[in-house]
Write a protein that binds this DNA or RNA. Structure first.
Length: 802
RNA sequence: GCCGAAGUGGUGGAAUUGGCAGACGCGCCGGACUCAAAAUCCGGUGAGGUUUACCCCUCGUGUGGGUUCGAGUCCCACCUUCGGCACCA
């Protein structure tokens, strides 16, 4: 063994680990378990990206460390392989998506294996495998049984020229990404999942888990709980508009109403409304906008008054006009609002534009200039029996009053909307339902699952908005499982989110063909101890999978309320030019090349050393070189090894401090500073000119989770005893990590003017005496009065003078 | 627009969570080795000032204000960048 040559050693160790099954998790349940999880990748045609290994290496470090600490570790991997890009690629190149997926998975797999990650490959899952999606369909049927799946008309993006439904991502500036043609909304009857039933639990149970704070906040805000009143505004004898408001206290200031352009009331009252054409025209325009274009605050407010009808304000009986405007969304609340221009910014702008009355009902601002929205410091005015009350008091009083009179009721509203579960695509799990003229929707019997996709030549979309499956009549036409008559299969498929909403459960028992995982295995392995993934999955994937898990918990199928005990997040890796890596920008770095040129261990060290794990960071080829140099130095240390079964005196404290720092940093996403302290330790070995066996063994063990190949190779070739991965994690002695003499800065008026070596236990008097003898300090005290002296033991000594 | 996060040397970042700003790495400069280069090793490296030199001084963490003996860290306002916005995954 001469020079450090990763090519020679990395493949060798990967093969040894694989042959020995070193990283297989055991279902024998005697040891304490640890379940570490990364978001399983979507095997795209582009292959692995340098961004992928960042989270994988991070949790690989945790997994390897935990094994050394005596845990039975489950660190699994799989493929989230259904999805749009594969289907589109397949259509374009006339290859079956199954084949495309197979090829992509093979590529990803070989790339991941070359990184030396300690995944348990025996538990690999693939969402497109019928043995897997059998259980995805099974869970859907459970949701359906419990009434959580229902059909509803919603709108999809429809390209008029291609005659196909488009994903939001395929709509660019209102045009079709493929052909540039016009995109309109088209109504479609779709399967929905009632995630809103779980809104309250999804918020409250965040208290049970250890997620990084910003993830919790994003989840809470996405669910968007707000408490308020539903209030009825009468229009005619039998028609009324229901509004949701969090500010019932301002009811006396409601001077008009706005309803969403799609509100059903418009058609219901079409015989009374005098300007239907105008309203239809406005609705058509609004339909072309996305929800967030519609709710932008800065844009000019638009709207049309509904002529021929008026609403009555229930608190004072006054008649108010009704408008339609696109800033009111049918999907939030009741699709209608009472407008209080004095105290809501959007209403104020609207009222100004349409010259509607603005009444002040909360005193404290200047409603001539802007809406007054500060609810903490306002007192009610112009509000009859609410006058003089504070906002909070008024809210309560008016709510009681409205409930008493039957004019409204207290209501909790969520921003969260039900989950649109249908896709008009081929490459997804078929929804296992059959429609029978007599029996309605009927479940495909469980014993017939998996309901597989038909093998066909063409899986291109139809031109009427139906899924490609609708064209395959021999698949669609079936018999009703209930009555045996002719019936038709549902042709929509499930969204990609379905398979990823429960994959972590399957890992606990991936080859079980009786149930989706055995109770014993679920009980042993759950909850996931640490789940790391991208910030971009904070709202959707995380919420959807928590929802499914909670549903399964309620029906006693899984043993824990929450799937993930701890959730952290990593930042993106950008190109050298600080922009997102993409083919079109020409800044993509291929991990294969890095491994070829520098080795997998260098790649791993660099990915962890590159910067703050939680922030996005640009790639740097020079940085990679630096990490290779570090490993070269580690390799050369073998020539400086001397005997010794104890830490040497001069390095003892350093060793204990490093063990502590590395151990703690690995737990706190601070891989970069852990590596920095290992680098410092190597620098210390080198400046001393030697390292003893005990020190080197500890060092190799600490570095092993980050750079497993080089450390294993050094360990065995130096014959340090067995294999490194079988060793236990080093311990540190807290007493030996504290210095008894330290240097503290001496400040005058907060500026450092000198330093002093003192014992840790030194008291104020002792330091003061030394301080007063310091020449430089005295220069600053000369001719001034000492006002105050502050001593923070171990930290600082500050003298305040005047 | 709404929700969330981040701005520190030439550069990626560090800072015991209110206590010496710039650890560690990269780059750059100088030196050693070499016929020479690469590799490696040693030293220097925030800006400005002062000094033969050691030293020492002023400024400095996106901008403007504030709290404090003391602010990269806390508070207020603003600017810029990034993630998400429900059919990309």
């Amino acid at each position: 063994m001469s020079n450090y040559n990763p090519e020679m050693i990395e493949k060798k160790w990967q093969d040894i680990w694989e042959e020995n099954g070193t990283f297989y998790a055991s279902d024998e349940k005697s040891k304490p378990k640890y379940y570490a999880l990364i978001e399983f990748p979507y095997p795209s045609g582009k292959g692995l990206h340098v961004g992928h290994p960042r989270p994988y290496t991070a949790l690989d470090i945790v997994a390897r460390k935990r094994r050394m600490q005596g845990y039975n570790v489950l660190y699994p991997i799989g493929w989230d392989a259904f999805g749009l890009p594969t289907e589109n690629y397949a259509i374009k190149n006339k290859i079956h998506p199954k084949e495309v997926t197979k090829k992509n998975v093979a590529k990803f797999k070989s790339q991941l294996k070359s990184l030396g990650l300690s995944f348990d490959w025996s538990r690999e899952v693939n969402t497109t495998d019928p043995e897997y999606f059998k259980w995805t369909q099974w869970i859907f049927l459970k949701l359906y049984e419990k009434g959580l799946a229902y059909k509803k008309t919603t709108s999809i993006n429809w390209c008029v020229d291609c005659k196909i439904g488009l994903a939001n991502e395929e709509v660019v500036n209102g045009k079709c990404e493929r052909c540039g043609g016009e995109v309109v909304k088209k109504d479609k009857n779709q399967w929905m999942l009632k995630i809103t039933d779980y809104a309250e639990k999804l918020i409250n149970d965040l208290d049970l888990v250890d997620y990084i704070e910003r993830v919790k906040i994003q989840q809470k805000n996405w669910i968007g709980r707000s408490e308020g009143m539903e209030v009825n505004f009468n229009i005619t004898e039998d028609k009324k508009i229901k509004v949701f408001t969090t500010r019932p206290d301002t009811l006396f200031g409601a001077t008009y109403m706005v309803i969403a352009p799609e509100h059903p009331l418009i058609n219901e009252l079409s015989d009374k409304i005098k300007n239907m054409d105008e309203l239809e025209g406005y609705k058509e325009k609004a339909n072309k906008k996305s929800d967030f274009e519609r709710t932008e605050l800065v844009k000019e407010k638009t709207g049309v008054e509904i002529k021929g009808i008026k609403a009555t304000n229930p608190v004072n009986g006054k008649e108010v006009p009704i408008y339609i405007s696109d800033y009111v969304l049918m999907s939030y609340g009741t699709g209608a609002i009472m407008a209080v221009p004095g105290h809501d910014t959007r209403d104020w702008e609207f009222a100004n534009k349409f010259d509607l009355p603005i009444i002040e009902v909360v005193k404290g601002g200047d409603i001539e200039k802007e809406a007054f929205t500060d609810i903490d410091n306002g007192v009610m005015v112009n509000s009859d029996f609410l006058n003089g009350l504070k906002v909070e008091e008024a809210k309560k009083k008016i709510s009681d009053w409205l409930e008493e009179k039957g004019l409204g009721e207290r209501k909790i509203n969520y921003k969260l909307r039900d989950w649109v579960f249908s896709r008009q695509r081929y490459w997804g799990e078929p929804i296992p339902l059959v429609y029978c003229e007599d029996c309605g929707w009927v479940k495909v019997p469980e014993e017939e699952l998996p309901l597989e996709l038909p093998e066909v030549e063409s899986y291109e979309p139809t031109d009427n908005g139906e899924s490609p499956l609708a064209n395959i009549t021999e698949w669609v036409n079936t018999t009703c499982p209930k009555c045996g008559k002719d019936a038709k299969r549902e042709t929509d498929t499930m969204p990609q989110w379905a398979g990823s909403s429960w994959y972590f459960l399957r890992y606990t028992d991936p080859h079980n063909d009786e149930e989706f995982a055995s109770k014993e295995n679920l009980k042993y392995w759950l909850p996931i101890d640490w789940y790391n993934g991208g910030m971009e999955h904070t709202t959707l994937h995380l919420l959807y999978s928590r929802f499914w898990h909670k549903f399964l918990y309620d029906y006693d199928i899984v043993p824990t309320k929450e799937p993930y005990q701890k959730r952290t997040s990593h930042g993106m890796i950008l190109g050298e030019n600080n922009e997102k890596m993409s083919k079109s920008r020409g800044n993509v770095v291929n991990p294969d090349e890095i491994i070829e040129d520098f080795g997998a261990d260098t790649m791993r060290v660099y990915e962890m050393f590159i910067g703050d794990f939680e922030k996005s960071v640009p790639w740097s080829q020079n940085g990679v070189k630096g990490c290779r140099r570090f490993l070269d130095r580690v390799w050369r240390l073998k020539d400086s090894i001397v005997d010794g079964d104890k830490y040497s005196k001069d390095l003892e404290s350093n060793m204990h401090k490093t063990i502590k720092k590395v151990s703690e940093d690995f737990e706190n996403l601070k891989f970069n500073t852990a590596i920095a302290s290992l680098m410092e330790l190597v620098n210390n070995f080198n400046s001393k000119g030697e390292v003893n066996k005990k020190e080197f063994k500890t060092f190799l063990t600490l570095l092993n989770p980050v750079a497993p190949h080089i450390t294993e190779e050094l360990w065995t070739s130096l014959d340090l005893g067995g294999m490194l991965n079988e060793q236990s994690w080093p311990e540190w002695d807290e007493d030996k990590t504290v210095d008894n003499e330290i240097e503290i800065p001496i400040q005058v008026n907060g500026k450092v003017r000198g330093k002093l070596k003192v014992s840790v236990e030194a008291d104020k008097e002792e330091i003061k005496e030394k301080v007063m003898n310091d020449e430089n300090i005295n220069n600053y005290l000369d001719g001034k009065n000492i006002v105050k002296e502050i001593y923070v033991p171990g930290k600082i000594y500050n003298i305040v003078v005047k």
